[in-house]
């Protein structure tokens, strides 16, 4: 099944809404807690990146009995150096954003840590797609 959610730009009152919606879906499906937690954390970080860096976008969630695929898409500025962006602590977030408690530069590394697979496609000035994959039948390490 599919679930499509929109993520508004810089709307901090909506922060975490998409992630909360995904959690509700996983609860309806009875997905194991450890996995729910990993998905929630990765999804939240991805959602915040779209809201803060990506100019808003969408989250498309696809579920089968074996896999959870999450596509986080935006048409924002793109990431010029993905390797650098993946570095712990690297962030281009503004002073203002940092003051709000975001921009610690741990989002992408946390997504990598929690997802079973992570793919990033990004074109400068065109946008970014982060693809997260979770395996449903695999035991949590």
């Amino acid at each position: 099944m599919k679930l499509s959610l929109s993520i508004p730009w810089m709307d901090f009152s909506a922060a975490g809404k998409a992630s909360a919606e995904v959690k509700k879906l996983l609860a309806r499906l009875g997905i194991e807690q450890g996995l729910v937690k990993r998905i929630a954390i990765a999804m939240y970080e991805g959602e915040m990146n779209i809201a803060i860096h990506g100019g808003g976008g969408t989250a498309d969630i696809e579920l089968t009995p074996d896999l959870v695929d999450i596509y986080l898409r935006d048409h924002g500025p793109g990431i010029p150096d993905i390797g650098l962006a993946m570095t712990e602590g690297y962030s281009t977030a503004s002073e203002e954003i940092r003051n709000m408690g975001f921009g610690a530069g741990m989002g992408l590394p946390n997504m990598k840590r929690n997802a079973d697979e992570l793919y990033i496609e990004s074109v400068v000035n065109q946008g970014t797609t982060v693809h997260l994959v979770f395996h449903l039948n695999r035991k949590q390490e």
Binding site: M1, R28, L29, G30, T64, P65
Partner: peptide, 10 residues
């Protein structure tokens, strides 16, 4: 939980 069977729940 919608159903104990994941396929049905989906």
């Amino acid at each position: 939980l919608l159903d104990r069977d994941l396929t049905v729940a989906l």
